[in-house]
Amino acid sequence: MKLWAVLCKKELDGFFYGFSAYFILAVYWALSLLAAVFFGLYFVVDNPSMRSFFAFQPQVMVVVLPAVTMRLWAEESKNGTLELLFTFPVGNAALVGSKFLAGWIMSLLMLALSLPLAVSTSAVVAVDVLNIVSAYAGAVLAAGVLTALGCVVSSVVSLPAAAYLLSVLAGWALIGFNLSPLLSSLAEKLPDAPFYLPEALNFSSRYQGFINGQFSPDSVFYFVSLTAALLFFNWVIVNEKRNGK
């Protein structure tokens, strides 16, 4: 665990060296506010659960988080420090886990920036605290999935810019994954087939549940298991690379 902390701190130090972390945080905050105000009409409709803010978090994260995750593996590859890292006596799980943790901490910092908004909203309207807590939990879990996805892409691509673009594309594909139209037409033809399964894998509807205040264990399991699956995939890629393949 100590080793994880050492490696995680190394990543965080890297983020906060120079202005990149501050720039990413500022861009995230600006995009979140713009989305909440212009698309969510934050100051027009009542927001007892900050719905206007949380509704667009996946989209904002898909654009901003890859700027964090591209650094984790692709930049190591580009700078040649991967060779140094891979010859440290560190297991693959610690390498993958510490990098993911650093990325996730960055996304938590981003979300923490919205706390003043929650406080100021509570001063204006009677907020539904439990609903807001549920929405924050959903955002934290969604950030975990998108960070893990970014880690996978970053470990495959050795150019940070390419890793960024591919992570954005993969993120859009994940949050836009919705087979409902196709399934409903199939369901008409095959009424007995178990079409509930792909729908249960829908990222957006699961996230929507959290915004609606439905803090359900199966949604938590969905996000946690998706993150774990992506991290396992990341581990496999790192293992292959480390074995010189």
């Binding site: 190394k10 130090d13 060296y17 120079g18 700078n79 040649g80 420090t81 140094l84 010859t87």
Partner: peptide, 11 residues
């Protein structure tokens, strides 16, 4: 081990 071209964490 010191790799070729000395890659280090420059920050």
């Amino acid at each position: 081990y010191m790799p070729e071209n000395t890659p280090l964490y420059k920050e």
